[in-house]
Write a protein that binds this DNA or RNA. Structure first.
Length: 444
DNA sequence: CGTTTTTGACCAGCGC
DNA sequence: GCGCTGGTCAAAAACG
């Protein structure tokens, strides 16, 4: 990855509110304690990741208002609270009226709570159902795809340790050897027969970048890291720090942390490699998110209509992993294939976190019309130099129905894509389940 | 004293 | 082949 914001990409959570960013303290440079932004962590008393918020909106698109039961808006609780807090100070209402009003409010709140529980239960049911489908698809896929079991010798074991983490790299490598099957991911394809080594190398080379606004020097992702180097990269006055995972002796995962040259409030964290050890719960969200991103990159779920002229992809804004305003850009022309999750936005940073949106609302698919007319606009977002090979999905050109259809097709046609999504969603949902009675997500 | 960070040196890949 | 750059190593320093 070049200095600055090259290969960067995606954009997300625009227009949404994150909960207050929590800062944890971590021993760091110069041995001093530094602030560490923790947007994938849990609250003190709950398990909701910070990517979720006090204002949780799990909604389907407006077009699906007939399915009101899926709408989940925990803001209702706030309104109830406000109602409850009304007092007789204004106008001096009689106590009897107050008591009656309070009782009515309590009843109303109770009903709302029941309603919310019901909605949450339904969401959970749907999620479980989807997960079952995912598992069935994966099982079916694995039995029919003989290529899948050959190249990664420890695939099963690794899946147990780190579910779905870069799981389909083997497929990518295999398919790379067959230009007819997967042209859309063009990187580091092995040209010899040394697949064991190339699998390892490729697993290490696939990168997932996370851009987030933070004054902290590092984001907390649940893993333990040891700094092993620092460099001044060309074109960026901010040094790039190199960390390796120390949760296991031989864990190959590295990460680079650097501030964006164009906007130093943006922290760019680039992950590389696959953990070879069980992850703590607090690390699963980040791991799942990054692995989902990488899986999409490697599975070929993302593709361009013009493979030969566009190998830089931006999926926007309603793609994987999250809010309707998330955009994701893939770079296959960079030295390593890189997908960047951009958690920054012009109007909302992590100090004003957006509400969580159920990521299944829409999706993307290779059949989605591409718009390659505005590469410079994309690069403007990326804060990088103009890049010739940019393909941009234009959400404005795609109707919600098209997106939904595309999503359905993508999900049913690509089990690995489903698995990747399920991993990301699963971690979020499971955390949410653990905490459905507590909406205080703030830490400290 | 063990662990972590710092930082200059070293190495590999790439372009010219 | 040479220089540039990114990435890693490892000895020294710092820290708890």
């Amino acid at each position: 990855m070049e200095a600055g914001c090259e290969n960067m990409v995606l954009n997300s959570f625009d227009g949404h509110k994150f909960p207050l960013i929590t800062n944890t303290t971590t021993r760091h440079e110069n041995g001093s304690s530094i602030n560490e932004m923790d947007f994938f962590s849990k609250s003190n008393d709950g398990n909701i990741p910070l990517m979720m918020s006090n204002d949780i909106h799990v909604k389907e698109e407006k077009k699906e208002q007939h399915d009101q039961q899926l709408q989940l808006n925990l803001n209702v609780g706030n309104s109830s609270l406000l109602t409850t807090n009304r007092t007789s100070n204004n106008g001096g209402s009689p106590n009897t009226n107050n008591q009656t009003g309070h009782k009515a409010d309590l009843v109303k709140m109770k009903r709302e709570n029941e309603s919310l529980r019901s909605m949450l239960a339904q969401v959970n049911e749907k999620y479980a159902s989807l997960q079952r489908i995912v598992q069935e698809k994966i099982a079916a896929h694995e039995t029919t795809n003989d290529m899948k079991t050959v190249t990664v010798e420890d695939d099963t074991k690794q899946s147990l340790l780190v579910p779905l983490e870069f799981k389909n790299l083997n497929r990518t490598i295999k398919i790379d050897s067959n230009p007819n099957t997967n042209k859309n991911v063009e990187f580091d394809s092995p040209k010899d027969g040394d697949q064991g080594r190339t699998v390892e190398a490729t697993m290490r080379r696939v990168r997932v970048s996370v851009r987030a606004r933070s004054e902290a020097s590092m984001i907390t992702d649940g893993c333990q890291w040891r700094k092993y180097g620092q460099k001044l990269a060309k074109g960026n006055p901010c040094p790039r720090a190199y960390y390796r995972c120390t949760m296991a002796v031989s864990c190959p995962v590295r990460k680079q942390v650097q501030r964006c040259a164009e906007d130093r409030t943006i922290l760019i964290t680039t992950y590389e490699g696959t953990h070879n050890h069980p992850l703590p719960e607090s690390a699963i969200t980040m791991a799942s998110t990054t692995s989902a991103a990488a899986s999409m990159l490697l599975s070929g779920s993302i593709s361009s209509s013009d493979h030969h002229h566009h190998n830089y992809h931006q999926i926007s804004p309603r793609s994987m992993l999250s809010s309707p305003n998330l955009t994701t850009t893939l770079s296959a022309t960079a030295p390593f294939p890189t997908i960047t999750l951009d958690l920054t936005s012009d109007h909302h940073d992590l100090r004003q976190p957006p509400p969580f949106h159920f990521p299944f609302s829409t999706n993307m698919h290779p059949s989605i019309t591409l718009n390659s007319n505005s590469p410079r606009a994309v690069m403007g977002q990326m804060g990088a130099q103009p890049y010739n090979n940019v393909t941009k999905f234009s959400s404005e050109q795609i109707s919600d129905q098209q997106l939904m259809n595309a999503a359905a097709t993508a999900v049913t046609s690509d089990p690995q894509f489903m698995a990747a999504l399920a991993a990301a969603i699963g971690s979020i949902i499971s955390h949410g389940n653990d905490n459905d009675n507590d909406n205080n997500f703030n830490r400290n």
